[in-house]
Design a protein around this nucleic acid. Structure first.
Lengths: 356, 356
DNA sequence: TATATTTGCGTGTTCGCACACGAAAATAAA
DNA sequence: TTTATTTTCGTGTGCGAACACGCAAATATA
């Protein structure tokens, strides 16, 4: 590998001069700069990132704002783990990471966590823009302070975010529609929403729109009934309302839950074998349903990779000035009983830390 | 971050002594070793990989043996790109990589490329064990020379390979069966094999077995007709034999091609709309068929990631002594028209190298 | 022409770790 | 007790790049 020293020798200048050219520090005559640039090109020099990282005095702080998770609603654990993995990898490159949590149902906690975050004056912020108006507030604070920011998992249009890392929710919904059409025995479907996240989390509404789109665009007759429940954490309530609807509309053969909580429906259905259930995300509960075949398909959005990639991207942006694409759409995974066990790459590839 | 220097100071020893403990170099009294180990533990020390890589004199050579690719049979391009990406990442960690190619239909070229490879005495070999008996020869050479080796994409049992990185072909076939059953209108299917890769590449036969398994295990009646063609590169021949069979067995509604060449079938079918076609791998040609809906499903095996992960794994093994799992099964992707464009992460996440 | 200022560039130190060399201390052999 | 040997450990150098310091040459000002 070519080193600065080699370039310097060939150009008959000192290492310092080459360094000045490499970093556009100025203070080099046009003549020598040209000479050095030519040699850099010809020898195909690139900075050794390892040595560069060690020597660099630049330190960056990335702040992450993400909903917390618990046992009943485990979705946010996977992105969290991906973030941690990336943090580990970039730590020795002088990039540190701080994670701030909020309650995904409480806009106040979202703002509060952000206020705590912004006090640390991070170099960049990666966050899940869960609530619309609060997000506007946050964004304007970030922009006045000139802090680059990135949206994770949820996309909000008309902001100057560096990137969005997540799924194309519209298309994910369309795929749910296609699978439903393929699998269900009638063309009458039930869509179950929670009042809680209906207004703000527009990934959910995009999924529903995509679902309907599939039928419209392919000119397939269908009918949907939409049920709004008070939340998925009250089994009695849920059981009652869902089964009531199903009794009333007894030609419904498919149930679509455009959030990550389909397991709550599957586990409280009177006669689940009669229905095709399609939902989102490979949470442990959902995967269990897939395996016992009460759910037919899960659409998954590579949550682990979302976390991991978002951090790697912002890290490359900060330390190597690599400009990412504006939208980074991750794969739309179709999960069934047979492939779900192979899908999660967040598990270690290595044996328990054995030193050989 | 805690440094060796910090540990040394706390233990009242020199940095050299801490270093000896960290690398089990010996020459440290039991007493001081214990003392140092305790402090390392308590301070949660871990080696700074960046500084370590820079200082280390250890250089490793990884040799890769992989089929070449061309425009009509592009499957091996994706693993190749994954390998290149990984090579780039580990280069500055003192790990170099050499790629050797062979013709996937010519065992002689396989052996010949290996003989050239082994002369360079690499630290480790990653290869695609395409032919059975030749693979045995290769393996015994590697084992007598004590060179750790890894299988990529194709798994061969009863060898002491460090890992296999690829797909669970049996399960992938089962999934093809399930999708076929879901999608095709009758339970009569055609399976098309090529004589060329029939004997040696056992991924293909495992896929076929998995396909049949789905119906047996779920007690679903079905019948398959198997057609062996002379290769997929002769369109006239292929068209003739396939359409002949379909005319003769006019209740066939699904065609399963357990190799990466389903596009050759799809593009030469008289009445493709009548059939559900299921094949493997997201080659450009196959993806085109998916998009024009002549193929219904592709099972994909994350070829890019196979290449990438295999190199990262062997790199961690060599430079950090991390022992990988014996089988690393990558996700079994179900691709349809709607999600195929989102599936390939080998494309850059960044804009054309813009320096901002 | 003499002095001040700017431009262009070389030198030296530092980052955290790996590893070689050799000195002091401990132990064994004489 | 003296000498030889082994054990234990400290010191110093280098990996490649980043960056501060400051000297010399070139140019500007008096």
């Amino acid at each position: 590998m070519v080193r600065i020293k080699d370039i310097a020798r060939e150009a008959n200048v000192s290492e310092g001069t080459v360094d000045r050219v490499l970093h556009n520090r100025g203070g080099v005559s046009k003549h020598t700069e040209q000479k050095i640039r030519k040699i850099l090109e010809r020898r195909n020099y690139s900075i050794n990132p390892v040595a560069s990282a060690l020597a660099s005095k630049n330190k960056y702080e990335i702040a992450v704002l993400i909903p917390n998770y618990n046992d009943t609603d485990a979705f946010w654990k996977a992105p969290y783990l991906g973030i941690l993995k990336a943090a580990e990898e970039i730590k020795s490159f002088g990039i540190n990471l701080a994670i701030y949590n909020f309650n995904q149902f409480d806009p106040k906690s979202y703002l509060k966590a952000f206020q705590k975050l912004i006090k640390t004056q991070p170099s960049s912020v990666v966050f899940v823009p869960m609530f619309l108006s609060e997000t506007s507030q946050i964004v304007s604070q970030l922009e006045t302070q000139n802090i680059p920011y990135q949206f994770l998992n949820i996309d909000v249009e008309n902001h100057n975010n560096l990137t969005y890392v997540g799924q194309d929710s519209l298309m994910a919904g369309t795929i749910a529609g296609k699978l439903m059409h393929l699998s269900a025995t009638t063309n009458k479907y039930l869509i179950i929403l929670s009042r809680e996240n209906r207004t703000d989390n527009n990934a959910i509404s995009k999924r529903v729109k995509g679902f309907q789109d599939y039928f419209f665009k392919n000119k397939i007759e269908h009918a949907t009934h939409t049920l709004k429940v008070d939340g998925f954490n009250n089994p009695l309530n849920l059981t009652q309302s869902v089964n009531d609807v199903l009794k009333e509309h007894n030609d419904i053969s498919g149930i679509f839950v455009p959030s990550s909580r389909i397991s709550a429906v599957a586990n409280n259905l009177n006669n689940s074998a009669k229905f095709t259930l399609i939902g989102f995300d490979n949470t442990p509960q959902n995967v269990a349903c897939l395996q016992r075949e009460t759910v037919s398909f899960l659409i998954s959005q590579k949550p682990f990779e979302q976390g991991y990639e978002s951090i790697k991207i912002i890290s490359d942006y900060l330390s190597k000035s690599k400009k990412p694409k504006q939208k980074i759409y991750l794969p739309i995974d179709i999960l069934i009983k047979e492939n779900v066990n192979y899908n999660d790459m967040s598990q270690n590839l290595f044996e328990e830390d054995v030193t050989i």
